[in-house]
Amino acid sequence: MNEVENYISRFEPEIQSRLKIMRELFFEVLADTEESIRYKMPAYKVGKYHLYFAAYKKHIGFYPVYGLTEIEDEILVYRAKKAKDSLHFPHDKALPIDLLKKIIRLKSLLN
């Protein structure tokens, strides 16, 4: 079991399922992405940047999401209050799979 799998295994099954989906999206969009734990959360190398996610009691946080002005309208609904780079995906709502793929793809293209 690698570090990310260990991180995911610490949560309840419903949360584990959501975290596994997010993890798989990175490899689906960027097959050769590098996976690690940074700042105590799963981290994925996308281009010259990293994207992170972390589970909390009521949501999954996704960081940092900036520089994506072309999809700002799509991500606005998920923006964390008082945080310009963070998105929150509540556990009681479906993950926005297509939006997550788009974010991963676009972040990998930023210079």
Rank of each mutant, 00 (worst) to 15 (best):
M1V: 13
M1Y: 10
M1H: 07
N2T: 07
N2W: 09
E3T: 14
V4E: 09
N6Q: 15
Y7V: 10
I8N: 10
I8Q: 03
I8S: 04
R10M: 08
R10E: 13
P13G: 07
E14C: 02
I15V: 09
I15G: 05
R18N: 05
R18C: 12
L19V: 06
L19R: 07
L19P: 12
K20V: 14
I21M: 09
M22N: 01
M22H: 07
M22L: 12
M22Q: 10
R23T: 01
L25M: 04
F26E: 03
F26S: 00
F26H: 08
F26K: 01
E28R: 10
E28S: 02
V29I: 05
V29C: 10
L30T: 03
L30R: 01
D32V: 09
E34K: 12
E34Q: 14
E35C: 06
E35P: 02
E35K: 02
S36E: 10
R38Q: 15
Y39H: 01
Y39G: 04
Y39D: 06
K40Y: 06
K40E: 11
M41H: 01
Y44D: 06
K45Q: 04
K45S: 05
V46R: 02
K48G: 04
Y49H: 13
Y49T: 11
H50C: 08
L51N: 00
L51H: 03
A55C: 00
Y56G: 04
K58Y: 09
H59I: 08
H59C: 02
G61P: 04
F62H: 07
F62I: 06
F62C: 05
V65S: 06
Y66E: 07
T69P: 01
I71Q: 00
I71F: 00
I71G: 00
D73K: 10
E74L: 12
E74G: 00
I75V: 03
I75L: 02
L76P: 04
V77M: 13
V77Y: 10
V77L: 11
V77Q: 15
Y78P: 02
R79A: 01
R79L: 08
A80P: 09
K81E: 13
K82M: 10
K82F: 08
A83R: 11
A83H: 05
K84Y: 08
D85A: 14
S86Y: 09
S86Q: 12
L87F: 06
L87N: 05
H88L: 14
F89M: 09
P90I: 05
P90A: 11
D92T: 11
D92K: 15
K93S: 13
K93W: 08
A94M: 14
L95N: 10
L95I: 11
L95Y: 10
P96C: 14
I97D: 02
D98V: 12
D98F: 14
L99F: 07
L99E: 04
L99N: 05
L100K: 03
K101T: 07
K102N: 13
K102W: 05
I104P: 07
K107W: 01
K107L: 06
S108C: 03
S108W: 05
S108G: 11
L109G: 08
L110S: 15
L110T: 14
L110H: 15
N111A: 15
